[in-house]
Design a binder for these strands. Structure first.
Lengths: 267, 267
DNA sequence: CAATCTAATTACCGGTCGGTAAGTAAATTC
DNA sequence: GAATTTACTTACCGACCGGTAATTAGATTG
């Protein structure tokens, strides 16, 4: 790691041009402050790998940045290290802890909480870079995206499932079954798939997410509590008919719990 | 195209061993009938590219098949041609026209139709190979996966949206708005995202899809017709607020139809 | 201005990629 | 059995990959 130099000279930095200079490279050699250059490299790498995937060549990336590919090695010892940095920027540094509190805020109705959460969440991830890199990483089998989804499950899906239980008037406390989690994943999946359609398959999608989120949440909440109740069908019948037409298999539900040893109780 | 030989000798084919021989390659040279070899190559390519993506090397693929990579060129003039063949097998040849009729069958209630359709559809696509190649192809920007999704929209999503209109007691005939389509995409996306969680992110998902499909459809139908009605809010009041809180734009909704040009990739 | 420091470069390496050309061997035919 | 056909292989090519080593040049300092 050659960066982070004397630090006494750090004050008088900041030259003029910092734009990535996409066009024809200036003949004159640009000598940047290491942290500026590193910033450019990381940002460029995010955009580059999002577009072509992690098999993209370092020479191509360097060309986009207006530098030679060797210069990359001054900042990252290996391609893998650069990719790790991209992951970090995308998934570790961008998780907002408030999300977890918004979902549990008892002063607001569940519908408002879900709308607030998903509007904020989508504002963070509904982007070309984020979605595509996330999918690339998943296909590559990189552990970080799997761990990210585990985080989503623990901090979003499980709390939401518990709220749904409450909204359905069901007793709390028992571990969440896989089927209960699947209900909560439904809303999440619907919205994420919208992002995939947009950024992976380049389909036309609504311009503004707000109305879509509101509609999806409202629709979701109209069916989800009843579905939770249907899972725990031992107690009460469905409230409007229609959904309860496949009543079987709900008796042994308690037997196949999720493996999670820890009680999902929010901290 | 070297295959498809004299055809007069086609009758006396079929040697013994046809298994892909995954283990140590037999020292003796296997001389296969061209169509058998081609079948092995295509099947092997599907499995191989599904695993590592289309950047996987032909030498690796050939090694798995127990042949040399040159032999591949006897059957496919270029790597791209092989990949095209994989697409064809996966997406063109596996579409079942009955799907389109099942959805419109007027003798069954909509819920039963949706359950039948999605159980059949998922039985076809909820597979490691299919899902991963579909996602790989989308990221690569290959036209075929985009065209496939256009097909899905035309043959599944649009008919479903029309059925939802009917179920909501709305007048038929007018062109479908983007928002109406988005409702129908919701169910589809929820189920496809389940496949992505399973085959791309290697998460635990329910073992049997039947109950999941039934639950998702039932839940969906509890909210979707109301959402359709909320979109055409001019007629009746929404039954619980929420979705209709951006009431403007519903009047000129007819003006921005699906054909809208929409700026691609604003970024 | 020369001296210094170091960001960024040119030059190069072994390995692998998709693809070509020539040779080899397994089946068929007589 | 010998001749023939052709499925398959070995040998090789230029281009490009990630990565190393030596060199150049832009800014700062005296």
């Amino acid at each position: 790691m050659p960066q982070q130099k004397s630090k006494s000279t750090k004050a008088r930095r900041r030259r003029g041009m910092n734009a990535p200079e996409h066009g024809p490279p200036p003949k004159r050699r640009r000598r940047l402050d290491p942290e500026d250059r590193e910033r450019e490299i990381v940002d460029g790498a995010v955009a580059f790998f999002a577009e072509v995937g992690f098999d993209g060549g370092l020479r191509d990336l360097a060309t986009r940045l207006g530098i030679t590919h060797q210069n990359l090695f001054r900042y990252f010892p290996t391609k893998e290290a650069l990719i790790e940095r991209v992951y970090k920027e995308m998934y570790l540094d961008r998780w907002q802890p408030e999300w977890e509190t918004v979902l549990r805020d008892p002063t607001k109705p569940l519908e408002a909480r879900l709308i607030d959460f998903y509007e904020s969440y989508l504002a963070a991830i509904f982007r070309y870079d984020w979605v595509r890199i996330f999918v690339f990483a998943g296909l590559k089998g990189v552990g970080i995206s799997q761990r990210y989804l585990d985080l989503v499950q623990k901090r979003v899906i499980e709390p939401l499932a518990i709220e749904l239980r409450r909204a359905a008037g069901l007793p709390d406390g028992a571990a969440l079954s896989r089927e209960e989690l699947e209900i909560a994943w439904g809303l999440h999946g619907e919205l994420f798939y919208l992002a995939v359609r947009r950024w992976v398959y380049d389909m036309k999608t609504p311009d503004h997410l707000g109305p879509v989120v509101k509609a999806a949440v409202a629709r979701f909440l109209k069916g989800a509590p009843a579905a939770m109740r249907a899972l725990n069908a031992a107690s009460a019948g469905s409230e409007r008919g229609g959904a309860g037409d496949t009543p079987g298999r709900t008796t042994d539900r308690r037997s196949r719990r999720i493996a999670a040893p820890q009680p999902v109780r929010p901290r």
